[in-house]
Design a protein around this nucleic acid. Structure first.
Lengths: 344, 344
DNA sequence: TTTAGCACTCGTGGTCACAGAGTGCTAACA
DNA sequence: TGTTAGCACTCTGTGACCACGAGTGCTAAA
């Protein structure tokens, strides 16, 4: 069950070659590689063993070999040499942060675009989970006689706004008073807890100061209760169309439908733990992803995990390069975000 | 050059049939239609004339005929009978406005989704041009020692926010004073004019009240000067993959690249005048759109044009149905928006 | 003017032969 | 005993060929 050095070498060269060319690799072409000094017949024997062990497979009975998912897995787990980014790549990554942008969302979005440009795969970035942010300021701007906008600013500078319906008989002065009280009491409370905190901590206070407080309070509390979904940013959604494994319409359709839907894929990404994660083909548990691999990396602010940055490519993707890139970008991202918002 | 009644009839049936089946239409199958009472030989003669006039064409020398772009143009201009929406369709459209949503963007977005669902084409909606909105309220929320968020609320309830860098030595009290003055003076000013108005109308006033007013003013004015791009919403980006004319990878690639890019297509849509517009194939002046038609409709609030709602389909699209739908939805949209925001 | 008939064209789908790339196996070799 | 050369075999892809069907254009008759 344990592979000999020579088998490992052959597996490595097969995977490398297939990643580069997308063509099944035959014994003859392998024997010509400079890192390989034995004959094609020997290689055929070794390949037969590797196939029996499940690391490689044939596309038809007399074809060259391609890596199986198990083969990729072994490659990723044991054979990956971290690839150094060259200077031009580093420059490109740095350019994400070159402009003086302060908005978290924009930075994150730009990361997605650059990542997909650099890899020619599809990149997906989960924005920070607003739920865990803390309230910085709540403001209410009346719009018409019976509508107003509630604006929530979080400590990371995220702004969320929602329009809501006003009870008809409220005094504008009361609204202002109420907003003041809410800000005083709820500043620093995580967004996700806002609703419950209102009732627990502020209700009694409000009752003392404001007429009809319950009506008004209800409509505001309701407004704040709408879950704010994590934002998902894509880069290079159509890059996969250029991959040779997707010259099949049916595959394209199911993959594009999956990407278009956004929900499914963000689920898939979200559930990955901290750090770098590689999911190969069916490891993703999703039929549309059968020929795809997903590599995810988390970014954070200080200790707190903020979001995930991911690359979706064919199983035949350049694992080494993508992982290096992801490590680099997520580290940079974390650093910039930490510097920006941590020192309050 | 002017078509006989019979030629018009034949053209109409050819277009209708081709739109339905995506198959070239032959003289024999035409002669079997109940609306047609003459023989296939007669039809062949008429078709030869129609081809000479440029209304229809062959895919190869012995194939049936398909409409040319000129043919579609004639069909759209002269032969289109407005199609009544059936009750279930009307219900579906109404459902856009069923929930009590007040946010303009959400309504617009939902329209796009429903439109693409109903047509199986791609829908594109240009959100309202924020530039023309008027300032309702400006607020500034300090975030860290040297950053703050400027929040702009417009009269339509649109909220725009931007983070910006603070000059280091400003007094928080001054900021507040300044915001008050700005709100007093700039309320009602179109967003696009904010920057110039600040210097023209408010600068002198500020000078009297605030230390270091110029530094602070500059950074705020700069922030407000960032153009806020019109938002573009898509529905059913991948619907085109299911159209039989796009079983060609090259076509799919160029089309998807075009859709993905968003900018080009929003340009294309933006330049259409008020009302319903149909652009067929190369009329769009864009190689990626060669086999596509674009139908646009504008929506408005009162008299003021707000945005555009569009459907992108193959040239072989159901013009009649899509036009009816667009008319209906854009009218409803205009009505709802007018009701919502006009009565301030 | 309309229509029936006929020869002709082109695309599609199937079969076939063949070259090329690759394999597995056997036997010889170090 | 591990390695290699050689050979028969397999599968794919391609191009040639053919038959079929749908459709056309043209001619001549109604």
């Amino acid at each position: 069950m344990v592979l000999t050095d020579r088998q490992v070498l052959i597996l490595q060269v097969i995977v490398d070659d297939f990643i580069r060319t997308a063509q099944p690799v035959g014994s003859r072409s392998l024997s010509k590689k400079e890192s390989i000094s034995f004959s094609s017949a020997t290689i055929r024997n070794e390949m037969a063993d590797l196939e029996e062990l499940g690391f490689i497979e044939k596309t038809h009975s007399s074809s060259g070999r391609i890596p199986s998912e198990k083969g990729y897995r072994y490659y990723v787990d044991h054979l990956l040499l971290p690839q150094k980014l060259n200077t031009s790549e580093i420059m490109t990554v740095k350019s994400i942060f070159a402009e003086r942008i302060y908005e978290l969302e924009k930075i994150v979005q730009k990361s997605a675009r650059i990542l997909s440009d650099m890899t020619n795969y599809t990149s997906i970035v989960l924005g920070p989970a607003v739920q865990d942010n803390k309230l910085k300021k709540l403001q209410i701007v009346p719009l018409t006689a019976d509508t107003a906008i509630a604006i929530i600013v979080t400590d990371t500078g995220h702004v969320e706004n929602r329009m809501f319906h006003f009870p008809s008989n409220v005094d504008p002065g009361d609204v202002e008073k109420m907003v003041n009280i809410l800000n005083e009491r709820l500043s620093g409370v995580p967004i996700v807890d806002l609703n419950s905190s209102i009732y627990k901590e502020v209700a009694t206070l409000l009752r003392q100061h404001i007429n009809n407080y319950d009506l008004l309070l209800n409509s505001i509390a309701q407004t704040l209760d709408i879950p704010s979904s994590e934002k998902v940013f894509f880069g290079g959604k159509t890059n996969m169309l250029n991959q040779p494994e997707f010259n099949d319409l049916a595959k394209i359709r199911s993959l594009m439908a999956m990407i278009e839907q956004e929900d499914g894929i963000s689920q898939l990404i979200r559930k990955n733990p901290q750090g770098i994660n590689v999911k190969i083909g069916r490891e993703n548990n999703n039929t549309a992803m059968e020929n795809c691999s997903l590599i995810t990396a988390t970014y954070s602010m200080g200790e707190e995990k903020l979001g995930t940055i991911a690359v979706l490519g064919p199983t035949r993707m350049e694992y080494s390069r993508v992982i290096s890139l992801l490590k680099y970008i997520s580290a940079d991202l974390s650093k910039v975000l930490t510097d920006l918002y941590q020192n309050k």
